[in-house]
């Protein structure tokens, strides 16, 4: 109940920030919020649009949650997302012609696997070689983006060789779309399942418990016979796997091919999404949906106003700041109430 009130206060505060931002851009606040709302939740197409954007944010956000809860500050969601797409495209190219349903599954597994490998590598670098995950994952983002650009000009380029994109996936391989009007695909359920799975993992399994202990206090973990290094590497593998899953689900569910602009910063935005969600799986899906709606709504808004697309990053930045400020304020209040000896 307390948590619920906390989130209500937070999201009301964020809405207020959005309104302020709109006003600062010189827009009619009521009219603009109306556009945002219609674009995000006005009808079933709009809701689909929101959910499609919330899907990669949820998955990559979960990836961030898992790593950060283990004390591994993975900033490499973007790179892992991209590698997920690349892994999927490689499998699609190598196994062209096999049964579409099987191929879809293999593509998704490959994407998650590629992301997991990249994450695990960063974890290994920190545990065994002392390279901080924060540093290595930031750098790996650049590597992954360069790898994408190179592969679209080389091994993964479409067969005509005219543009720098990968071969489009056949429709039969793409994830099912329940409604022709909308981009909504069944990947949404993958995200939902992942939320449940991560929640169960963190809260109800010994491995998840150990992961949280390592994140809370590595020294307590060590003194209680938990293999800190192994736990951290595994957390990074799981984290990278979820971010890779985000990428490959977008590939096989939405875009059907890779292009230079494939990533669209989802892997980065996943960080504020996870933080806004309190590094909690359910909180993450809520904040991912909020951001998804913001993106979906601003796409409609920008059709009616000249500055709609620049609004989104501004609101994102302010939303994170507002979040930090509001949580600080709420914590102060609860501390003032409770306190300790």
């Amino acid at each position: 109940m307390k948590v619920l009130i906390r989130y209500l206060v937070l999201f009301a505060g964020l809405l207020f920030v959005v309104a302020l931002t709109l006003a600062a851009f010189g827009l009619d606040v009521v009219q603009s919020i109306n556009y945002l709302w219609r674009g995000a939740a006005g009808d079933s197409v709009a809701i689909g649009r929101t959910l499609v954007r919330a899907t990669p944010l949820t998955l990559a956000g979960l990836g961030i949650v898992v790593a950060w809860r283990a004390g591994m500050y993975n900033i490499g969601g973007e790179g892992q997302y991209v590698l997920g797409g690349i892994g999927g495209a490689i499998v699609a190219k190598l196994l062209v012609g096999i049964a579409p349903g099987v191929l879809s599954v293999l593509i998704i597994l490959a994407g998650a696997g590629f992301g997991a490998l990249l994450g695990a590598f960063a974890g290994w670098l920190q545990v065994k070689r002392g390279v901080q995950v924060v540093i290595s994952t930031i750098l790996m983002n650049f590597l992954a983006l360069l790898l994408l650009e190179w592969s679209l000009r080389g091994p993964l380029q479409e067969s005509k060789g005219q543009t720098f994109v990968s071969e489009s996936l056949p429709n039969a391989v793409m994830l099912m779309r329940p409604d022709r009007q909308s981009d909504l695909h069944v990947g949404v359920f993958v995200a939902l399942l992942a939320v449940v799975a991560v929640w169960v993992f963190l809260k109800f399994t010994p491995a998840g418990f150990r992961l949280r202990v390592v994140g809370e206090s590595a020294s307590a973990a060590r003194a209680n016979k938990i293999d800190v290094g192994k736990t951290q590497i595994r957390a990074m593998a799981l984290s990278g796997g979820l971010c890779g899953l985000a990428g490959v689900i977008d590939y096989v569910g939405l875009t059907g091919r890779l292009a230079d602009g494939f990533a669209q910063n989802w892997g980065f935005i996943a960080i504020p999404v996870a933080l806004l969600g309190g590094l909690n799986p359910w909180g993450t899906i809520v904040s991912a949906t909020y951001f998804g709606g913001l993106f979906a709504g601003s796409e409609v808004l920008k059709r009616f106003t000249p500055i709609g697309s620049s609004l989104v990053p501004a609101v994102q930045g302010l939303a994170v700041l507002a979040f930090v400020g509001l949580s600080y304020w709420l914590n102060q209040r609860s501390e003032a109430k409770n306190g300790s000896d």
């Binding site: 109800f204 399994t205 003194a223």
Partner: peptide, 30 residues
Amino acid sequence: SDGLALGMSIEENMLLGAIPNDVFSGGFVA
């Protein structure tokens, strides 16, 4: 620093060391 993970709950700190068998239900921590 070594005995407890101070940020975690009292009940979860009681699981440190070795998670006892009697808190499981169907393979999951209940």
